[in-house]
């Protein structure tokens, strides 16, 4: 009978949990980069603006304003919603498309919003938008990451192991976040 080995069990668990979490790692990693730069871009949507000019709209009554705006814009399909934020503006909402008409001038702002395919879904999962069961799955994933980090240190023995050069890598990896925080909080 084979002798029980903690190191062997550790390697097997590290390997199999690694397989199990690889998709989640990619999702969280890609989304992490995407949302890190939220100041510079919208990681979830592609938004585009266009401008158009139509004849000024003189009507004041709601239905007439809507009809004139649709006629001016050449739209035949009824909008999903129609809203007037103020007496001089009318908004026509279609699927992922909004027309904002400045009634006295006839200037129209056309805004389109398209989800970034795959990235939107990744971000929703990463930021736990679904809540509910996903919270539990995400917690399990986080625990798996902690396990992977710790178990990873005990895979190798000897010169390349934790007691060899491994300890220096662990030290550097610890100094980076701790040192950065000290600089950010107290020194800059």
């Amino acid at each position: 009978m084979k002798k029980f080995s903690w190191r062997r069990l550790n390697i097997v668990l590290h390997r199999d949990i690694g397989y199990l979490t690889v998709a989640m790692l990619i999702i969280y990693g890609v989304s992490g980069i995407a949302v890190n730069h939220i100041q510079d871009w919208n990681p979830n949507f592609v938004r585009e603006k266009q401008f158009k000019e139509i004849e000024p709209i003189t009507a004041t009554e709601r239905d007439s304003v809507k009809a004139e705006a649709m006629r001016g814009l050449g739209l035949t399909e009824e909008p999903k919603n129609f809203f007037r934020p103020d007496p001089e503006t009318a908004q026509l909402f279609y699927e992922n498309l909004t027309y904002s008409v400045d009634l006295p001038t006839g200037n129209v702002l056309i805004e389109t919003t398209q989800r970034r395919m795959v990235l939107f879904e990744m971000n929703q999962l990463h930021l736990n938008a679904p809540k509910g069961l996903w919270t539990f799955i995400a917690d399990l994933f986080a625990l798996s990451l902690i396990f992977m980090g710790i178990s990873g240190m005990f895979i190798q023995k000897g010169k390349t192991g934790l007691m060899g050069r491994g300890k220096w890598f662990v030290l550097i990896g610890t100094v980076i976040p701790v040192g950065y925080w000290i600089w950010y909080q107290y020194l800059q």
């Binding site: 949507f45 709601r62 934020p85 699927e95 992922n96 930021l127």
Partner: peptide, 22 residues
């Protein structure tokens, strides 16, 4: 007409996607 109300949620607790407009 000409009225709307803001429905504010705590940051991160609910995230409304941009394409809900309309």
């Amino acid at each position: 007409e000409f009225e709307a109300i803001r429905f504010k949620v705590e940051d991160g607790v609910i995230v409304f996607p941009l394409d809900l407009k309309g």
